[in-house]
Design a protein around this nucleic acid. Sequence first.
RNA 1: GCCCCCAUCGUCUAGUGGCCUAGGACACCACCCUUUCAAGGUGGCGGCACGGGUUCGAAUCCCGUUGGGGGUGCCA
Length: 469
Amino acid sequence: MSNGPRYRFAPSPTGFFHVGGARTALYNWALTLREGGTFVLRIEDTDESRNQPQWTQGIIDALAWLGIDKSHPQFEGPYFQSENAAAHVEAAMSLYAEGRAYFCDLTPDQVQERAKASGKPGYDGFSRDRGLEPGPGRVLRFRVPEGETIVRDLVRGEVRFDNATIEDFVLLRGNGSPMFLLANVVDDRIMRITHVVRAEEHLPNTPKQQMLWEALGAAAPTWAHVPVLVNEQRKKLSKRRDKVAVEQYREEGILADAMVNYLMTLGWAPSGDTEIVPWQRIVDEFRLEDVNHSPAFFDIQKLLAFNGEYIRAMAVEEFVQCCQPILAGPQVPWHPQQFDKEKFVAMAELVQTRVQVLADVPAMIDFLFVDTPVVDEAAWTKATKDSWARDVLVEMAEACEVCNDWSAANLKTILERITESRQLKLGKTQAPVRVAVTGRSVGPPLFESLEVLGRESTISRLRAAIARL
RNA sequence: GCCCCCAUCGUCUAGUGGCCUAGGACACCACCCUUUCAAGGUGGCGGCACGGGUUCGAAUCCCGUUGGGGGUGCCA
């Protein structure tokens, strides 16, 4: 086991893996790798009933997709916070024994009433000196000391909190179960965590946790609070309104490398003029001290642009390989039996520069694998509105029938001849042919498409289009 | 309300007192290339929130204002 720093990543199990969590995980992971430390995964929930096995597995799978594999020697865990409940209670009771915590029998409603009456928000320390014994319904509260708590944060510097503004917070609930704040600190201590890198939303909790560390007689870990990810309204990304599940991006064919690279450029940038950099470069250069202080907009457009770059950078064989899951998936518009991998391979290189996500691929080649392509009516109308369109189709069909060299180059020559005889441009005359054969006005280069489609299908589709006119 | 954080092109960022006439990327626009669409190439548009200091000199340091965000649970 490594003696280096121990970074903990502590997501709560929610049934999906948040992109914000993914970025935090990546920060921890990059640091772990460079510092020769350990990445400690702890599933964060004091309530065991919420630790659904499939959710935990989902987090582990998502992490693995991002390159944070649990079989890696620097990966440790997962641990489950709920399994340490006894230690949490024990720590709380030791605080009680030392007078650093006390019991209180006020109900939440009573606390609120008192706050309202006094005009000051929060718990007012009512039971501080009442000497209450433990008992059912009584919560254990931490006795916040006077003075000031200074949080030293790697990204934000020193953040000062006046302890007078921090209420005596609850450690143990009325039913005796530990609160997350406490559980967190105790677990971090047990796991010998040295660095806590998490989202900024936890910053206001940090002085409380730091006081707890001190009360428990230990030095707090190094803190680092990274800015949150926001939507176009500049609000924290939320499951309800925003697309935040990394699983969803994975399914749509965002490449893991692109996602990782993009996520790392939110709040931080590699040196030089290009943001597309290999992971190793990120590991070498990433520093928490360089992370931006302000929230970053999760821009799907830019993610897609990154993804397009990563797709184009792949070798064709690799691209073909990556497309397998999508092409064999349930979303494809053709019958699985009609799919012909050879045809796809023949088109792959042309498809590669035309997609931003793998999910775009099927629509690019569907005309090859269906009996009759679905016709885009707007495209049909536009492509066939000129009087010469029908004649071009007729001539093309006839030429195809007698053609003895079914190659893209020759097919191009054929249509060029038809085009020239009418003093038109190929850009014009290819349109009706394209729509007749593929159903669309845009797509991969036409003649290569015809070559791969084959003579019979091409002719029959041209004939069908002529008939329709 | 109270506490905390933040503020460079539309967006993500570079910038740590003179190299800034503020650099790059995404998006957008134009042109080139071109069988459509992409890709690629070239160029363009566009920013230091505001007001005071400090300094010979400020995007950079200080104060204030404004504007955003987060936290204020017997949730995590």
